[in-house]
Simulated assay, not measured.
Amino acid sequence: MRLHEYQAKNVFADAGVPVPDSRLATTVEEVLEAVEAIGFPAAIKAQVHVGGRGKAGGIRIATDESEARRYAGEILGMDLKGYTVEKVLVEAGVDFENELYVGITMDRGEGEPVAMVSTEGGVDIESVAEETPEKIAREHIDPAFGLHPYQARKVVYGAGIPRDIAGDVASILATLYDLYESKDASEIEINPVMVTKQREVVAADGVMNIDEDALFRQPDLAEMEDEAAGDELEAKANEYGFDYVRLDGNVGIIGNGAGLVMATLDLVDHYGGSPANFLDIGGGAKAERVANALDMVFSDENVDSVVFNIFGGITRGDEVAKGINEALAQFDELPKRVVVRLAGTNAAEGMEILNADLVDVEATLDDAVRRAVANAEGAQ
Rank of each mutant, 00 (worst) to 15 (best):
V193L: 14
T175R: 11
I188F: 03
I210R: 08
V201N: 04
D168E: 15
Q198R: 15
D211W: 06
G160Q: 03
A174H: 12
A185V: 10
M208F: 03
L179P: 02
A170P: 14
L173F: 06
A185G: 09
L173K: 12
M208R: 03
D168P: 07
P192S: 01
P162Y: 01
M208T: 03
D178K: 15
I165E: 03
L176E: 02
T196H: 09
I210N: 04
A203N: 06
V156E: 05
V195Q: 11
A159F: 03
S171K: 15
S182K: 14
A185E: 02
I161C: 02
V207E: 08
E189I: 09
I188N: 06
A204M: 09
I188S: 05
E189M: 11
V195R: 15
N209Y: 08
D178E: 14
D168T: 10
D178H: 13
M194Q: 12
I190W: 01
N209L: 12
I172T: 10
A170S: 15
A203S: 05
T196N: 06
N191W: 05
N209K: 12
D205I: 12
N191H: 09
Y177K: 09
I172G: 04
E181K: 15
V156I: 12
Y180S: 03
R199T: 01
K197A: 02
K183N: 13
V156F: 11
